[in-house]
Design a protein around this nucleic acid. Structure first.
Ligand SMILES: [Mn+2]
Ligand SMILES: [Mn+2]
Ligand SMILES: [Zn+2]
Ligand SMILES: [Zn+2]
Lengths: 140, 140
DNA sequence: TAAGCGAATGATAATCATTCTCATTATACT
DNA sequence: AGTATAATGAGAATGATTATCATTCGCTTA
């Protein structure tokens, strides 16, 4: 059998992913950082014909299935990544720079929390905000 | 002396808050939940003349001073609240409903983290996403 | 107190990510 | 193949936020 670079979903009752939904998911598998929808759209267009609305709809579908997640950036754009990725940041309110933080400090918490709530948890967001060293000084 | 319902800022080097900035801060002191800028604008207008742009600028100023914080809602609108408030939610990806979660599970973590990073932490965001009980079933 | 000046304000236009519309096309099933 | 259903794409619409820019405010100084 020949190798298959796509990542198939094995969910029991969910309908199969469409070609475009699969393409979006595959693309996210190749990324190390979360990307905005518009950026994913540009990257996808380099390889195939696809509409922007379709990208947004695919992202919505994948998110409802618990395969990907999104975090809202400061300027109202959403950044998408795989649910399995688990990266958090310190973000400067002044210059906007983000500094990665690892490991995830709430992974264990989520595991403990899940059994105690009537809610199926897919993922979490966690971010710290403040001022980076250079910006703290430039405020004076 | 007569009582003063406003909340004065005692920062050492920061310029005094303007009348409108103070009004925004006072209004946030009266809220139990985070509110979007547009909503704060409506509430403020009931008591005084003020421009929408001024509300946004006041919120930005107050945030840079570490007095208030904001979290981005799913639809791209920011919700503002006092930094001292510390409330997190479980949010359903399907119906959008939010369920409060207390106490804050990372307050202690933030305290431990602060000394180990070259960054002045003002506040954090933490949110869990997934499906609420009714929505889990309606998915099938 | 009057003049001067930089910051703050407000009305409005511009921006821009996201969502909506609807006609067209692909897919699943008989 | 023929029909029902879902997906797609082009472009318009939406709506929160930001940028403009002329005016006003607050404060210092003569
Ligand atoms: Mn995490
Ligand atoms: Mn908290
Ligand atoms: Zn910074
Ligand atoms: Zn729900």
């Amino acid at each position: 059998m020949k190798s298959d670079s796509s990542f198939k979903e094995s969910a029991a009752h969910s309908p199969r992913l469409t070609r475009h939904q699969q393409a979006v998911l595959d693309l996210l598998h190749q990324q190390t950082d979360a990307l905005p929808a518009q950026e994913l759209y540009s990257l996808l267009r380099q390889r195939q014909a696809i509409g922007l609305a379709t990208v947004y709809r695919a992202l919505e579908t994948l998110k409802l299935r618990g395969l990907i997640k999104s975090r809202m950036g400061a300027n109202g754009e959403a950044f998408y990544s795989l649910v399995v990725s688990d990266q958090h940041y310190l973000t400067c309110l002044q210059c906007g720079q983000s500094f990665p933080l690892d490991p995830c400090p709430v992974q264990e918490l989520e595991t403990h929390l899940q059994p105690s709530v009537p809610f199926k948890i897919y993922y979490h967001t966690l971010e710290f905000f403040g001022l980076c060293e250079p910006c703290v000084q430039s405020i004076d």
